[in-house]
Design a protein around this nucleic acid. Sequence first.
RNA 1: GCCGAGAUGGCGGAAUCGGUAGACGCAGCGGAUUCAAAAUCCGCCGCCGAAAGGUGUGAGGGUUCGAGUCCCUCUCUCGGCACCA
Length: 910
Amino acid sequence: MPCCIVQPNRSPPTESKPMSMQEKYTPAEIERAAQAHWDLTAAARAVEDASRPKYYCLSMFPYPSGKLHMGHVRNYTIGDVLSRFHKMQGYNVLQPMGWDAFGMPAENAALANNVAPAGWTYSNIEYMKQQLKSLGFAIDWQRELATCTPEYYRWEQWLFTRLYEKGLLYKKLGTVNWDPVDHTVLANEQVIDGRGWRSGALVEKREIPMYYMKITAYAEELLAELDNLPGWPEQVRLMQKNWIGKSTGVRFAFPLAAEFAQSADEKLWVFTTRADTIMGVTFVAVAAEHPLATRAAENNPELAAFIAECKQGGVAEADLATMEKKGMPTGIFVSHPLTGEQVEVWVGNYVLMSYGDGAVMAVPAHDERDFAFAKKYDLPIKQVIAADGESFSLDGWQEWYGDKQKGACINSGKYDGLAYEAAVDAIAADLAAKGLGEKKVQFRLRDWGISRQRYWGCPIPIIHCPTCGDVPVPDEQLPVVLPEDVEITGAGSPLARMPEFYECQCPKCGGDAKRETDTMDTFFESSWYFLRYACPDNATAMVDERVAYWCKGGIDQYIGGIEHAILHLLYSRFFTKLMRDVGLIGDLGEPFANLLTQGMVVAPTFYREGDGEQNRGKKLWLNPADVDVVTDERGRPTGATLKADGQPVIIGGTEKMSKSKNNGVDPQSLIEQYGADTARLFMMFAAPPDQSLEWSDAGVEGAFRFLRRLWKLVHDHVQTGTTLNSEAAPRVNAEIEAKSLSTVQTDLRRKLHQTMQKVADDYGRRKQFNTAIAAVMELLNAYDKANNGTDLSDAAGRALAQELLEAVTLLLFPIVPHIGQALYSELKPGADAGLASFPKADPAALKQDEIELMVQVNGKLRGSIRVAAEADKASIEAAALASEGAVKFMEGKPAKKVVVVPGRLVNIVV
RNA sequence: GCCGAGAUGGCGGAAUCGGUAGACGCAGCGGAUUCAAAAUCCGCCGCCGAAAGGUGUGAGGGUUCGAGUCCCUCUCUCGGCACCA
């Protein structure tokens, strides 16, 4: 690495004019030099400093899948812009990076290419790290971590044992996708149309013992704290709120009729939010896994077959919810808790064992799903709610049937006439009096199953002893190191076939025991990595006091994909509270004070219909880089052809960049062709961060053209020589009095200072970088116009040009730091843009004497007037009424009303 | 199915608190420069209309002096749904 370059963009001394600025914009050269300079000066190193406000800017760490994709480039550019901007604002900035290194793709790669997951992962990390470096991100690489290293995962094993001892981690049966051919557990992603992705076999549900985190114990706090997150997007808070799904209802029991009960007081418990409709219950539905269903099936082969059918298919909720609703009677009857009426128990494939008690009361008249089910199986429907102006009919479902805000009870005996809340209260009280139920808060949130029957993950630190049971691995035996020399076969975990891994002694009794061979969900690693960045070098503790410095008041900015809006963010919030309760960290409150959820990177797709035996009916996806789009004379696309053969291809939709649609663009080739600054500028300019970003080759070229133009403007200014490359360059307000500026110069200077204000607001408050860039482009257009005339040729003009170009360089620096570094040192020799302060608008320059107001007649734009900035309402009205457009369109009628919106417009109503 | 978001010119997008719709860029068209091309520069660019003007923010309705923005109904697209990360 070169170490002698301090001024990155100096021409080599061999040239005839050694001090002159290079005319051509050469990104490769200036980027190499700028990065070398930052490396040399440790520009991104973050050191705790209590005397300065800190700014911890965190981007979701990548999975090392092989190479960076555009989504990464976008994510990390957003983070870098915010980091650099805040550094220029005087903050002590931390921007770390690491690797979410455990996961299925490493095992898949091992299967496909016969490479070891560990080796594959580490080489991917090495390559992707170089890619990140070539993009010029101000990352403190001394804090780099990878979750697949024992130095990292030993601490989560340690935490696991603490939580296990506290009862916050426990074992119970869980349902998984089972591939009966490959004899392996499948992830939901590996189940395609109900079949295993490799074997093609019909997937079955299977119950196995798993470890669970008691996240439900924190449901109330996780929900309540959402209100303390003003820096989060509203929709993410709402999604989490709905995910936690707190509902207040009534949990009550149907006593089993004597001939079906195994004990005298056996009951079937259900939970409902609609206790007001309890008199409309005509049957009860239980999940296929419910004990009552199992019992009923013992002597009922038909029901047993139905239950077996329910166990076909995967466990993904989306599949369960879109399934055709089916059911079968059990022949078991229970008593209605209030009427004593006999109600039959059905098995329903739509009832989830994991929610509540795995059983629901069915009120077909007032629940849409029950209504459809009752119609299908010809079960009775009993109306118990009536609403004014509505009539109930069995012919079809109407929205109001299920609306708890509408109507009151009927056909419900003593509850008749009561509205929702009063009815629920009365019914709950009566159930409680009978000892058959009570009001209950129920959460949709379920405990988090963390066991995975996979190899490439963190080993669960438990030893199974035939005499002592499950024993957590003692601290001094941690970490339980994952062996890296293994054979991946695709059938179960290799750990389960490695006696050298699982054979061990019980830490309690010393007898022969078996080590747990399941690994942890990779969400476990990503739930606390942001705390470890504060102290990645600590070999004796999971976290230390540096967490308090960097994470105080929450991480200042978290940036990542919207697809993580629920699970990852919820688990991370949960971990912060767990770690607080284990005494590891003080009460940091919420981990992420501000959250920015970036949109996806999408690109057009192209395909041809396949032919021949193999491909008939299949779409053969073509990469956009290999396709020419044909347009008409107005630029509208009319079709597309393949570059290779000139023959037409079909234009598909615009979709998320993916391998399967072959519409990905490799960031590497982009960097090589145009440089990192162009890639960064395009990504920030094409769309606001939280919206999806559409890839456009032409847009990339536009970004490159802009940087080339910026380079030339600065070059021309420097070559003109007014600044003489000296520190003594004249400044407006110092050597040059602001009032000596011409009108054109004053206007341009006002625009400059308005732009400073807007860009700072866009970076800091709005986090909308496309408009910041647009504002600078607009400013440069105005500069160009003034400069191309003779408006800037006098001394004041040169001083203004100097002020403007310096400011523009710094305004853009967070987005395009390499060219910024080079240009700034040309404008101010010896100066380092990376250490400069962000430009601050001068209030005096913002002042305006005269303003333009729009004139409307009946809300339609009819002209404009110029008035003094401090003009009063009466004189504005008078000027508006006298204006040409107003006179013409008022057609002599008197004004009924005149609305004056200060600084904006006048609306005359006639 | 459930939860969440979105829809504005040929395209990406702007309009920040209900106040000039289309900033900025791309594509396109016309011109200058060039032997020519590239690059660059200048101009035009929602739709209808010769113009005056009318009309226009997914569809339909509403509130308002004024609606892309607020309310209601609907359509389509995207994200998540607990073992993809």
